[in-house]
Simulated assay, not measured.
Amino acid sequence: MNDSSTRIHPTAVVDPGARLGQGVTVGAFTYIGPEVEIGDGCQIGPHCSFTGPTRIGRDNRFVGHAAIGGDPQDKKFGGERTELVIGDRNLFREFVTLNRGTGNGGGVTRIGNDNWMLAYTHVAHDCIVGNNCVFSNNTTLAGHVVVDDWVIMSGFSGAHQFCRIGAHAFIGMGALVNGDVPPYTMVGGNSLGRPRGINTEGLKRRGFSPERIAAIKRAYRTLYVAGLPLAEAREKLAEQAQSSEDVRLLVEFLGGGERPLLR
């Protein structure tokens, strides 16, 4: 049910089966379909479309021409009931596209809180995005990608289906990720991205102490610089994790995934 504080432009179309919270604004020529729930305080610009089942938290902003909750772009999709779930305080700029999940892929595409998704970002079916991420212009995620908290993806970067990108990673401009990116790692390079050290500047900005950063650098050297087989590197990292919670997070990340580790 719509609240009296909700403001809907006269050219917008809101299906009776949609639910809009308090203080929602809806811009011109926007369409909101059935089974769409939009939380309090959301701002929706012109020419957007929302298809359900989609559940959106509070205080999100959709600037304009965004396509939210569309069918997954998957030939196996047969019209089964799937959904898109979005948290709170996210920003979605022009022409962002977010697809619902697939029946055989978990059924849900999920986006957390406090993320920025800039113009032309695409998040495909069954992806899971954490909190406080920044996706720069033209960032593209294929299906089933998992992006943990505090990840920055630069312009024109992308991720292959089923890849995982660990917390605090930084993906450089134009880099295409085709394997799992460990936490804290910087990825650079034209076309296929490769590890290029740790995201030191990002960690400093988030309050990591010099001691924590030094432990992460030591772990990165163990994994990527020492020339060790992956099994042996894991053993050494497990030892380092005994005195570092940050390295423990890295070890846990290495525990599984459908794609190979980006090396």
Rank of each mutant, 00 (worst) to 15 (best):
A119M: 13
A119E: 14
A119K: 13
Y120S: 11
Y120D: 10
T121Y: 09
T121Q: 05
V123R: 01
A124G: 08
H125A: 09
D126H: 05
C127G: 08
C127I: 01
I128C: 12
V129P: 00
V129Y: 00
G130C: 01
G130D: 07
G130Q: 03
G130A: 06
N131L: 04
C133G: 00
V134Y: 13
V134K: 05
S136N: 14
S136Q: 15
N137P: 14
N138V: 04
T139F: 03
L141N: 11
G143D: 02
H144S: 06
V145I: 10
V146K: 14
V147D: 06
V147S: 11
V147R: 09
D149E: 07
V151I: 08
V151S: 01
I152A: 11
I152R: 10
S154W: 10
S154K: 08
G155E: 03
G155H: 04
F156I: 08
S157Y: 08
S157E: 04
G158C: 11
G158N: 03
G158W: 02
A159R: 07
H160T: 06
Q161K: 11
Q161H: 15
Q161T: 12
F162W: 01
F162A: 04
F162L: 05
F162E: 06
F162P: 12
R164K: 15
I165W: 09
I165D: 08
H168C: 12
H168R: 04
A169D: 00
F170I: 05
G172M: 13
G172W: 02
M173K: 11
M173R: 09
M173C: 01
G174A: 02
A175V: 12
A175R: 03
V177Y: 07
V177N: 09
N178S: 15
G179L: 07
D180F: 03
V181F: 08
V181D: 00
V181P: 00
Y184I: 02
T185F: 05
T185A: 04
M186R: 12
G188A: 14
G189C: 10
G189A: 11
L192W: 08
L192E: 12
L192K: 14
G193Q: 10
G193T: 03
R196Q: 13
G197H: 08
I198E: 01
T200N: 00
T200V: 14
T200R: 14
T200H: 05
G202H: 12
G202S: 02
L203D: 03
R205I: 00
R206T: 01
G207I: 13
S209H: 13
P210G: 11
A214P: 04
A215L: 14
A215Q: 14
A215E: 15
R218W: 10
R218Q: 11
Y220L: 00
R221W: 07
T222P: 02
L223A: 02
L223V: 07
L223Y: 08
L223T: 08
A226P: 07
A226T: 11
A226D: 14
G227L: 01
G227C: 04
L228Y: 06
L228W: 06
P229M: 05
L230Y: 01
L230K: 10
A231H: 15
E232Q: 15
K236E: 10
K236F: 03
K236H: 02
L237A: 11
A238V: 11
A238F: 09
A238M: 13
E239T: 15
Q240C: 07
S243R: 02
